[in-house]
Design a protein around this nucleic acid. Structure first.
Lengths: 177, 177
DNA sequence: CGCAATAATGGTCAGCGTGTCCACTAATTG
DNA sequence: CAATTAGTGGACACGCTGACCATTATTGCG
């Protein structure tokens, strides 16, 4: 059943996501506000209020939208990590950092962040690790450790997720098996 | 040689640090601004501009000031982690989260954050781990992993650093030795 | 077709923290 | 005393916010 009334514009979504990721890439998102997004995306500021409760939710949706089309989690753990690292170092890092910052001040948004975005990412990581580690408890701990190291490099020490990092994470799994 | 002119007021520092930590404890620091700090600490807002380049630097100094008087890193690794976990879950967590958020938007502040605060904490962790792990390279990796897990629990999943976490971190060292 | 319903626009408005300036007072050295 | 530095309190424009409102656009249904 399709609901009555004017449907949500797909053009708006696309323009908003594009402009959001563009603003995040420039100056690591210092100028990311509803104002700048609305101006750049040729969209009314009010529309942003109507469709997203918070700027963080816009970033979250923009990241999810792009991640869904560029990250494959069906191969080996190493392949997944290579894919993931390329995405983060390629385009996702500023957005991840912005979302992380927003989650520190807004408890409600932090909950949404964890239940939607983080939940998806975590299960992907978990299945990837489980495929190479039979012990369920060990797999859980290792997946958590990889996720922790990932965020640590992204948000705290700001280091690239290079080949050395991937090797180290894979070594973590081998040492436990 | 003492410099000419009126000396920096120690009263100002103390009042500012106290009010900052108090504001951070209430509502996890949503109302932490120069304005609110100045009002609560009975200090001119201009003074804050004169002495700290950023609100983040105020928080950083407030945390360092208190951490210097309440965290001991001279015993075993387990003792250090117990001490550290108690401090974070006791009073430091909101401040750490606030600083982390600020570091995501301000590159210069992020650099100060790493070179001062993070540097101190990292060497403390490193020596604590080295005391129980002879291999230097393994010690470095393990210390990084513990730090990563710590920040992950503080800023991403928002879970307490309880006894189970301490056990898991100690287990990480034993598995490597 | 006309009506109800929902989406999107563009404009206005007060609120509030920011950053910056200024004149003035306070405390310390020489 | 003069010079120097710290702290105060008031003022100002700027920019983003969140919340309105009227108007227009696009769809489903009777």
């Amino acid at each position: 059943m399709t609901r009555a009334g004017r449907p949500l514009s797909v053009v708006v979504e696309h323009a908003v996501y594009t402009e959001t990721l563009r603003l995040l890439a420039d100056e690591s998102g210092t100028a990311l506000h509803r104002q700048s997004i609305a101006d750049g995306a040729q969209v009314s500021r009010q529309t942003l209020y109507n469709r997203w409760p918070t700027v963080g939710d816009i970033v979250l949706d923009a990241l999810s939208d792009r991640a869904a089309r560029s990250i494959d989690s069906s191969g080996t753990l190493r392949a997944y990590l290579v894919d993931l690292a390329a995405a983060i170092d390629g385009w996702a890092r500023p957005g991840l950092r912005w979302v992380l910052a927003a989650a520190q001040h807004d408890t409600n948004f932090a909950e949404r962040f964890r239940s939607t975005f983080l939940g998806m990412r975590h299960t992907a990581m978990h299945t990837a690790v489980t495929s190479e580690l039979s012990d369920r408890e060990a797999a859980r701990r290792t997946a958590d450790l990889i996720a922790a190291s990932l965020w640590y490099n992204v948000a705290i020490v700001d280091r690239p997720l290079d080949a050395a990092w991937i090797d180290e994470m894979c070594g973590l799994v081998e040492a436990t098996s």
